[in-house]
């Protein structure tokens, strides 16, 4: 049981993600999580404002079931399959984060400086959360995919657009982490 309760190493997680992709293709679907952001818009009535969202989201209900499942999986894994919420980090990472103002990095899954209720209820914290989400939603639909659709499926299928998109993911991520974080935190 210890081996289940401890964090799973990359060489377990990577192949299991490939298995997820296989299962979806086996049932005739292409893994792609960010499409659900459009499905949620359509459910919310965005078709009244933007024609794109007039599609029948019920035809995408399989994908909404996948993300509902992910949430249930997140619940199961964190409540019943995890013994500690600490994340073991490279000491250098802890020092770097401390210099940015993140205390006790790795003590919990998420930094309290961003993901605590106090942070959420402050103006700056709220803008960081909603801004991060906005960039992810806007960028993933602009690029036509996120880490799953481009990063896993597209790269596996050797699709040129996915190589370009993943290069973009890294350019954006590096700019944020190395150049913007010192001004934000």
């Amino acid at each position: 049981m210890d081996i289940i309760l401890a964090p799973w190493p990359w060489y377990v997680a990577g192949p299991l993600i490939t298995l997820t992709m296989f299962l979806l293709f086996y049932f005739g679907k292409r893994l792609g999580i960010s499409s659900n952001l459009e499905n949620l818009c359509a459910i919310g009535g965005a078709g009244k404002l933007v024609d794109f969202f007039k599609f029948d989201w019920r035809s995408k209900s399989w994908n909404l079931m996948v993300v509902l499942g992910i949430a249930i999986g997140g619940f199961i894994a964190s409540h019943w399959l995890t013994s500690s919420d600490a994340v073991i980090l490279n000491p250098k990472t802890i020092i770097d984060l401390d210099a940015l103002g993140f205390k006790n990095a790795g003590a919990y899954f998420l930094p309290s400086e961003i993901y605590s209720l106090d942070a959420m209820l402050s103006l700056k914290g709220f803008l960081i959360l909603i801004g991060a989400g906005f960039l992810v939603g806007f960028g993933s639909r602009y690029a036509g995919g996120c880490t799953s659709g481009h990063g896993i499926v597209g790269l596996s299928n050797l699709e040129i657009p996915s190589f370009i998109a993943v290069a973009g993911f890294f350019i954006g991520g590096l700019i944020m982490t190395w150049f913007i974080f010192p001004y934000l935190f």
Partner: peptide, 20 residues
């Protein structure tokens, strides 16, 4: 793909979470 990817990457690093 490139611009969309960069915008996505900025948000992924900031929020530390992609859609899944």
């Amino acid at each position: 793909n490139l611009l969309g990817g960069i915008i996505f990457g900025l948000g992924w690093a900031l929020g530390g979470a992609c859609p899944g």
